[in-house]
Design a protein around this nucleic acid. Sequence first.
DNA 1: CCCCAATGTTAGCGGTGCTAACACCAGGGG
DNA 2: CCCCTGGTGTTAGCACCGCTAACATTGGGG
Lengths: 201, 201
Amino acid sequence: MGGAAKSYHHGNLREALLGTAFRLVDSQGVQAISMRALAREAGVSSAAPFRHFADKQVLLDAVAEKAAAELERKLDEATAECSDALTQFRAMTVAYVRFAAEHPALFDLIHSTDSVSARFLGEVNDERRLKLIALIIEGQNAGLIPDADPELIALTSEALTHGLARMIVDRHPRLQTLSSEQARQLALAATHLLQTGIGLS
Amino acid sequence: MGGAAKSYHHGNLREALLGTAFRLVDSQGVQAISMRALAREAGVSSAAPFRHFADKQVLLDAVAEKAAAELERKLDEATAECSDALTQFRAMTVAYVRFAAEHPALFDLIHSTDSVSARFLGEVNDERRLKLIALIIEGQNAGLIPDADPELIALTSEALTHGLARMIVDRHPRLQTLSSEQARQLALAATHLLQTGIGLS
DNA sequence: CCCCAATGTTAGCGGTGCTAACACCAGGGG
DNA sequence: CCCCTGGTGTTAGCACCGCTAACATTGGGG
């Protein structure tokens, strides 16, 4: 009936824990979360969370997975509204850097998670890389990109993007006062420079 | 006399703690260190470390500072034996990536330290950037580099280097089985590609 | 020479991750 | 229909952690 008076069983503790953990990491950083605090927040005893996550790391892996999914969603969303391949590539770069700037703790967690879910991240990453390489080969066939090793070109632009994102997350002195709009422009400028250099545009 | 029977006062606890903390972070990662364990290692009571470091974060800041100094030393060492400016730049990039590959935990700690010592890192970074920009302007005057904003070019190559290093530290799937020699070659190839693109070489 | 500030000690508080043993209850098989 | 099983919650507690307060020791400068 009204208000759903708390029953002995929570109902969906796992999702609740995951959700508040996600939000807490995003707003306070990964080191701000504790199993006991999460349990308190969910109105449940300190031992309950361990019924759903073998240990803290498993929880963090799950949060990382969720964050990675969110990142990927944003990337897809960004490329969806672009027609030609080059603008897609640019949009992806911008979205990637923007995500890092807006959710540094989540971005950090994604990349510091090297246990089980690393496999998941690897697959996602591979997918993205394949897309990128396909695009580069397409460009090479059209004579727009020099005949360097596509893998290497992909790796380079990936490193550029990731590096920019990381410099922002790591509060690089020159970037620490950057707004996300400035980050957008910076990402655009950098990729443009790289593309100009390589001959992409 | 012989063996220096332990006296009440340790003698140089601060340096001892810092040293073992540095080594422990390097070999086991930052989360493997605890004040109490450090105290035990130094053969001293659990409260003693707090006479020298206000709290754990201050200790970590000190370790980060030490690591940053070590990084800078390696960078200087790498450029010292190069005559012309371009090879210096390349050597710096390689040394940077190599340090990240060989000491991921220290590299990580350096960049995740945003409290007091961030100022120190900022200054070091600024110094490095100024060197880089001077080099770029030199290249532009010689007509070897296009007249793009030197700041932007510097930022781009910095992002490339940092990104490569980070991808290695973050165990990027494509890079996780890389030897440090392979890392060296990769860094060389990437910077070469960038330089070629920009017109540096 | 002696005293005091620096540096060590013990004891302890509140928090943490995690485990064991037990309590509850929902849903499917007899 | 009832019962019982296994998933989910509870309480109690262990070992460790960061950190503090109050006390002990001692070496070096006035």
